[in-house]
Write a protein that binds this DNA or RNA. Structure first.
Lengths: 179, 179
DNA sequence: CGTAGCATGTAAGCAGTTACATGATTAC
DNA sequence: GTAATCATGTAACTGCTTACATGCTACG
């Protein structure tokens, strides 16, 4: 059981999903390709943490809808209390910025503008997630409390939002520094 | 040539360092173990991007001091202008937070307190980096400009600092939410 | 007397990416 | 027509972590 496996179980505690949906929903918080997720799901199923039903579709390809089992829920609760790995951050831009004095202002500004656009897109996606959570919970976000099912998703998106805002502020700060 | 290899070259544009020092200095921005760095350095040396001198020491183990070559500097400049990989973020805490409604307030607060301590330590280390940069440049940080050697390190530490401050703010926000 | 820091390296294994493989539908 | 979305899977490869290996000095 690696971290991503627990991450998949974590998503499945809210409701059943296909491997494809899991891949999409874990993206903002843990980048994983389908080629990593499908084998892990098969493994989770073999160990009794999840189960699936085969759903044939006519217009789209057939799908497997996975649900978490009791055993899976127990394992997930235990995992939360276990020591947490430190976050891992790998940002090529950071490595480039270290030796930015090698280039002139124009290429440096280009680098920044590209990254700013990436953060703005990410920010938009997070806003959509806020909207979805509001819909699903039927409450204003501020009213959500720990045992509400949507509390976790809400505070997680808030975490991502605060971080992306910090990143955008840095981009603005840098732009001023460079001009 | 992978991203970490360019990262090592990036550090070597400032001054010569040993593999051990490279490992320590790249830590805050790209987590890499010595077992990954040493083979990459050997490879960079074989391809003429870096060279080293063997420095015998009596009290400590002998060391290899690596310097970047002209070829290495050229490659590094070209790399900056190439498309930049999107940042990768893997935070187990984020996955746990998603299903935090499974547990009670106490374990949730414990999780948060542990992470807050981690961020505070990181923040202290970044402050030390600011001090080092100030010393090395001999200027107030705000006076640094793009072609100053210490401009890159300065704005990079600023980036990390703004991010860690956002993370700490989230921890505080969460603590209020949970009490 | 044990632990941390300095300093380098290799080997085995796990995690993650890229590429291969298929195939229908919808939107531009 | 060509790209994107839905949907699953495997194979080969690269990247990264953990463990093995050595050995001296300084600190508590």
């Amino acid at each position: 059981m690696n971290t991503l496996s627990y991450g998949l179980l974590s998503l499945l505690t809210k409701h059943s999903r296909t491997g494809y949906e899991l891949m999409q929903h874990i993206q903002p918080f843990w980048q994983a390709k389908h080629s990593q997720i499908y084998p892990l799901l098969a493994q989770l199923e073999q160990n009794g943490y999840v189960e699936f039903v085969h759903v044939p579709q006519s217009d789209k390809p057939d799908k497997k809808v996975y649900s978490i089992t009791e055993k899976g829920k127990e394992a997930t609760s235990l995992w939360i209390a276990e020591p947490t790995d430190e976050p891992v951050m790998r940002d090529e831009l950071a490595l480039k910025v270290y030796c930015i004095s090698l280039v002139d202002k124009e290429p440096a500004l280009k680098l920044l503008a590209e990254r700013k656009e990436y953060y703005l897109k990410k920010r938009n996606r997070l806003h959509l997630l806020f909207d979805k959570i509001k819909e699903e919970s039927g409450k204003p976000l501020e009213k959500l409390e720990i045992h509400d099912s949507q509390f976790g998703p809400y505070v997680l998106v808030q975490k991502a939002m605060m971080k992306v805002d910090a990143d955008l502020s840095w981009c603005e700060w840098m732009k001023k520094k460079l001009s």
